[in-house]
Design a protein around this nucleic acid. Sequence first.
DNA 1: TTTAATTTTGATAATAATTATCATTATTAA
DNA 2: TTAATAATGATAATTATTATCAAAATTAAA
Lengths: 145, 145
Amino acid sequence: MASQSKVRYDSYIQENQLKSSKRRDLIFEHILQIQGHFTVDNIYQEISKIDRGIGIATIYRTVKLLVASGVLTEQTFGEKKGWFEIADQKLEHHDHMICTSCGKIIEFHNKVIESNTYQIAKTHRFIIYSHKLEIFGLCNTCQKQ
Amino acid sequence: MASQSKVRYDSYIQENQLKSSKRRDLIFEHILQIQGHFTVDNIYQEISKIDRGIGIATIYRTVKLLVASGVLTEQTFGEKKGWFEIADQKLEHHDHMICTSCGKIIEFHNKVIESNTYQIAKTHRFIIYSHKLEIFGLCNTCQKQ
DNA sequence: TTTAATTTTGATAATAATTATCATTATTAA
DNA sequence: TTAATAATGATAATTATTATCAAAATTAAA
């Protein structure tokens, strides 16, 4: 259900006494359809086709709002720009394997890594807000070429 | 021993038929003294005090060379700029816990996480070049405030 | 040790991603 | 319908980084 994102989006707007707007709603709806990871520019290119006059600043503002409201999470994947994706719908966290040759991103989840991550934080009396494991290397397809 | 870095530095220069230079050597020697993580600007500020006329472009170039030669590794720590540190001298990889309040970086190593990382890559027939686990949150000191 | 080829350098322009500014437009509650 | 305030697009500003280029430094050869 996409409704978890919707609740987060609506609540955030309500709780911060923001006003609604057609363009922000359009961006939100569009992002919900996206599978996988994307950049601000990706969305800007796509939405520009539908809504001719939209400015990139609005995309930046909306994506920032969606991160603040918990709808999206941001990563850098070692690059110096933001990559976004829909926040985990379930409670299960996932990590990423990034192919440095073709850019493919493979998601995975590992319970052992997960529990050890929490364990090590506890040892250091560290409160976890978020965590990410990134593996860079060659995917199976690229190895063959 | 700092000699592992020295070997890497010298070999890289030799193998790429580069010329030696006083300023590059100065930056290299200076970086070897640094404990922990730093940015290009950190080094630029410090070296400027010793060598008045050095340009920031030379720092960028040298740091890039040091990464290419394996003396340094680069991370982003979720920010959109590069953070550097001396590459692991031992074979043991380490990860980072970053306090989002004070910026403190705690290093740690966990064998179970490590082996599971390699295991999951194997499952996906993925060849690992590098990997990094970052934990963001509140350090013990900041929790008390 | 002069020369010639090549690399390194600093200054600065260019680029990329993002944020800030500001006048105009849209939304909403009264 | 209006008054207050938020949202928007255009664009300037900012930050981190890379590219360009003429001058200086280095090195190998004569």
